[in-house]
């Protein structure tokens, strides 16, 4: 059953693997395909998918931080209106020297995603033109979306917590103590423990 249904997905993976030697693809489920490539190959895979395979739309471009493996993973999500298949193109780059080629000549709007990723993860896109500051203003710390960035510590340094709100703990007891009222029954149902 699966064979007949996943026909076009498997054909896509085959086609990509034939064209590019260092590429491994996998059919996740119906209408979803993941492909892992080396970072040098990314622009050619993208332009090949766009011009030859009909994946003309870049839906999204995102980044995941993997400090365990010392990697950043960049993901391009493409969509083909003809095939109705979502193609995920993933690539791993080193965390020490994060650098990757800029693809905004293939899709113009990639520029915005790239600027956001550059600001939030500190990844350099070679040849990317655009103002350095995107959303954050006067940011002088580590890029905030990296997983080793400790937000609580940062907040502690830069802002003041209101007493009683230093963590996400349950404050109902405290409220009861201060106001002298009982916790209503309906609220007890939603206890955090």
């Amino acid at each position: 059953m699966t064979d007949t249904i996943l026909d076009k997905e498997q054909k896509l993976v085959q086609l990509l693997e034939q064209t590019f030697k260092k590429l491994s693809g996998k059919v996740v489920r119906q209408r979803r395909v993941t492909v892992s490539v080396e970072k040098e190959l990314v622009p050619s895979v993208l332009s090949y998918a766009k011009s030859q395979l009909g994946y003309i739309h870049l839906s999204h471009m995102s980044c995941v931080d993997w400090p365990e493996n010392n990697n950043f993973e960049i993901i391009y999500i493409l969509w083909s209106p003809a095939d109705k298949v979502q193609l995920f193109i993933k690539t791993l780059i080193n965390r020490e020297n994060p650098e990757i080629d800029n693809v905004d000549m293939i899709w113009k709007h990639a520029n915005t995603y790239e600027r956001e990723i550059r600001e939030m993860y500190g990844i350099q896109f070679n040849g990317l033109v655009g103002a350095q500051e995107f959303i954050l203003e006067d940011w002088d710390d580590m890029p905030p979306m990296r997983r080793d960035f400790d937000t609580v510590e940062y907040v502690d340094d830069n802002y003041t917590f209101r007493p009683g709100r230093e963590d996400a703990g349950d404050v109902r007891e405290e409220i009861v103590k201060r106001s002298g009222e009982d916790i209503p029954d309906f609220a007890k149902k939603y206890s955090r423990d």
Partner: peptide, 19 residues
């Protein structure tokens, strides 16, 4: 605006407005 609300540990919102 009172204590940060659900953004109590967010890196880019202020916590106590009256400061």
């Amino acid at each position: 605006t009172i204590n940060g609300g659900m953004y109590w540990d967010s890196y880019n919102t202020i916590k106590i407005l009256s400061d």
